[in-house]
Design a protein around this nucleic acid. Structure first.
Lengths: 328, 328
DNA sequence: GTCACCCCTGGGAGCGCTCTCATAACAAGC
DNA sequence: GCTTGTTATGAGAGCGCTCCCAGGGGTGAC
């Protein structure tokens, strides 16, 4: 009888102590087949007394099922991982993952070559949740792996999507701006290639058109720095602007900083609103008017969908509501 | 000759195409033994043409070496993962990890039972980097695994530590407050059980003592919410306070909000300073005076140390410098 | 008693890889 | 020539687990 070289108990040790075969022990531990009550009890107490924990590598080698969840963040550079929205999502996914006993790994997927197959044909990964999903990333999902992928953002053919209703949220913010008398509303958007930037911009265009107001769009990249620069551009190009809507809160903070430096009163001269309702939104001066973004609920749903393998609707939108504070 | 059931090329396929044995192919691919130039070339081109990628599960099953890095965040609840400092660390670790071709997983380690053995005896994990390290967490590192663990925060017996010199940074901030005439300086600290809260508090005590100033300490938990509440306490207890030093920037933002709501001028009536120099620090009103915290460099060093297995000093402190803005 | 049915159990193959070891091939030293 | 050494190679074992399959033993119907 061989002893384990590293002191780790193996399945064989459990089986020996419990007085059953490896097969029976395996069945009890993974719950994958019949076992008598007596066998179950003895295996369970053997596991306890030996401190046995199955070797995940061996397990997924043979069962072809993974034990970790990869969070694939699509972006132009690994710097996307610095985004506060991604941060919230990562934290939420890590919490949700532990509930399912899977480890959560983080991976950057280059925007121009989102090599998803590379991740999915690794047997150690059970599922992938995409963030900042693009059409290219969805195309990169091999059809055989559709059931193991969920998307936070857009979805398509077999990849269920979970997202905030940012069109509705943007509309709520813009309607609030309109209702409080703003008529020359500028918007600082995100990069045009990102699908999550589209709905808010559409909402903006629609509302401006139907209200007969001028369209004042300046691109940014979700960062406070471009929020600052873009707001500078807005002021130079359309000095009579009376409201700036940032695609997210960071952008709005940048707008706040530029306006303050330029001597404008907020909200007296120019109103500012953001989107996401991050923790700092209520701490800025003035406190930021924004719309909610239930990132945690969205991520938890996506993780649950992809790990439980139950049917989920192809597309789920979570409502976003206006949070009225002082900046607008 | 058997064909691969899932279309994936295996080592055997590479060997067959290259006209060598599995052993030789393995040696070339993992670079773990001698091989003739001819054999090397043929194996490499076979890998190319088949799109072969080694199965990590099988690899670590036999070689007993892992392929992922776990970031262990010590805290009372999974909510620690929400901390912006942790976020920066996670992003940095994910970037550093990809450079070494290891996946980075995130795990919460309960403060009262940091079961590190559970993570370390999983052969799929190559190394662990601890964050918010406590003495209990260091004690939980089995001595056989010392070389596979690095700590961001405190270190001990064989676990190298990497941290910001937050004592020095705090001193720099406090000296600046003193130099600009502040004499009744309150400090909002972090939870006392967290080692990373200790050095700044010590620095505060030392400076107050040597300058003959009163000690005004109120505990917080690194969040803006407690920063607000603690500052309220400071104002109630010591109404003549003329400076508030927050243990981190979030705390300082909370202080800023409370002071603003209470009608104080910053920095006119009360100066405010933080620590970390996060992205929002320069966006607040007034822009926050703080000290730098090179999280990315620290994390990259820790990851490098633990993956390269080269000798590293038992303890490395990264300097923190004052960033003078408008709040103090 | 015989048959057909369960439910349970253990033997054994094999997942894809690395690694040890024996052998082969060839050069250099005496 | 033989020994010694060095380098390249392949055969084969086996990492720890799951899963297929054959067999054992009980139960109930006839």
């Amino acid at each position: 009888m061989r002893t384990r070289p590293d002191g780790q108990a193996r399945l064989e040790d459990v089986a020996r102590v419990a007085g059953v075969s490896r097969s029976t022990a395996s069945r009890v531990i993974s719950g994958s087949g019949p076992a008598s009550a007596a066998a179950r009890d003895r295996v369970r107490s053997a596991v306890q007394s030996l401190g046995y924990r199955p070797d995940q590598a061996a397990r997924s080698l043979v069962s072809r099922s993974g034990f970790r969840l990869v969070l694939g963040v699509v972006g132009t550079s690994p710097r996307v991982l610095d985004d506060p929205y991604v941060h919230r999502a990562v934290a939420a996914a890590a919490s949700a993952g532990t509930a399912y006993e899977v480890g959560v790994s983080l991976e950057w997927l280059p925007r121009h070559a989102p090599r998803l197959d590379r991740i999915l044909d690794d047997r150690t990964v059970r599922a992938v949740v995409l963030i900042n999903t693009t059409e290219a990333a969805l195309d990169a999902v091999p059809s055989t792996f559709r059931g193991r992928v969920a998307s936070i953002g857009i979805g398509a053919r077999g990849v269920p999507s979970f997202d905030v209703d940012n069109g509705g949220g943007a509309a709520a913010v813009l309607e609030h701006l309109y209702a409080t008398g703003r008529r020359r509303i500028a918007m600082v958007t995100g990069p045009l290639w990102m699908p999550c930037a589209r709905r808010p911009v559409e909402a903006y265009r629609n509302l401006m058109r139907s209200a007969g107001l001028p369209v004042r769009l300046v691109p940014g990249d979700f960062s406070a720095a471009t929020g600052r620069r873009a707001t500078r551009t807005v002021l130079d190009r359309w000095p009579d602007t009376d409201a700036v809507f940032g695609i997210n809160d960071a952008t709005a903070f940048g707008a706040l900083a530029t306006l303050r430096n330029a001597g404008y009163q907020v909200p007296g001269d120019v109103a500012v609103a953001g989107f996401d309702d991050i923790a700092y939104a209520e701490l800025s001066a003035p406190a930021l008017t924004t719309a909610t973004h239930p990132v945690e609920r969205i991520v938890t749903s996506a993780v649950g969908a992809v790990l439980e393998q139950s049917w989920v609707p192809p597309s789920t939108l979570f409502p976003s509501t206006l949070v009225r504070r002082d900046s607008a």
